[in-house]
Deep mutational scan, measured.
Amino acid sequence: NQASVVANQLIPINTALTLVMMRAEVVTPMGIPAVDIPRLVSMQVNRAVPLGTTLMPDMVKGYA
Rank of each mutant, 00 (worst) to 15 (best):
R47A: 07
P57Q: 07
M59S: 13
A7C: 03
M59Y: 14
V35A: 11
A7T: 12
V49L: 08
Q2L: 07
G52Q: 05
V60W: 01
T28Y: 13
M56Q: 15
P57M: 07
G62S: 12
M59H: 09
Q9F: 10
V20W: 08
A34T: 06
Y63A: 05
N14F: 08
P33H: 15
G52Y: 15
Q2N: 10
Q2T: 14
A24P: 07
A7D: 00
V49P: 02
Q44P: 14
A24C: 04
G52P: 00
M30Q: 12
A34I: 07
K61Y: 15
T28W: 10
L19F: 07
L55S: 00
P12W: 04
Q2A: 13
M21H: 09
M22P: 00
M59Q: 11
A3M: 09
V5W: 01
V5Y: 01
V41C: 03
L10C: 04
P33S: 09
A16C: 03
M22S: 00
V49W: 02
M30R: 08
D58P: 11
V41M: 04
G62H: 11
N46W: 10
Q2Y: 14
M30T: 09
I37V: 11
A16F: 11
P33L: 06
V41F: 06
V45E: 00
I11M: 07
V35W: 07
L51F: 13
A64F: 15
M43S: 05
M59G: 03
N1T: 08
M59I: 07
V60Y: 01
A16M: 12
N1E: 13
N46Y: 12
V5L: 04
R23W: 04
T54S: 09
Q2P: 10
N14E: 06
N46I: 05
G52R: 06
E25T: 09
I11T: 01
A48G: 15
D58R: 05
P33G: 09
M30C: 03
V26C: 03
I32H: 00
L19A: 11
V49C: 04
L17P: 02
V35E: 13
Q44I: 15
P50W: 08
M43D: 04
A3P: 13
T28P: 02
A64G: 15
S42C: 03
V45S: 05
P12M: 15
A64C: 03
M59N: 10
A3D: 07
P29Q: 11
A7H: 01
R47H: 10
G31N: 01
L51G: 14
R47I: 14
R23I: 13
L19V: 13
A16N: 08
L51S: 15
I37H: 02
S42A: 14
P57K: 10
P12K: 13
A48K: 14
L19P: 15
N14K: 14
T54Q: 04
Y63C: 03
R47N: 07
D36Y: 06
S4T: 11
N14M: 07
P12I: 08
G52I: 02
L51N: 10
Q9P: 00
T53S: 06
S42R: 12
V60I: 10
V45Y: 00
K61C: 03
P38A: 09
N14I: 02
A64E: 10
V45N: 03
V49N: 01
L51E: 14
V26N: 12
N14G: 12
L17G: 00
P38N: 14
P38F: 11
N8S: 15
V49R: 04
A64Y: 05
P50M: 09
N8I: 13
P33A: 08
I32L: 11
P12A: 10
G52C: 03
M22A: 00
Q2S: 06
R47F: 08
I32T: 02
L10K: 12
T15S: 10
R39Y: 11
S42K: 09
M56P: 01
V6I: 08
I11V: 11
A7I: 05
R39E: 10
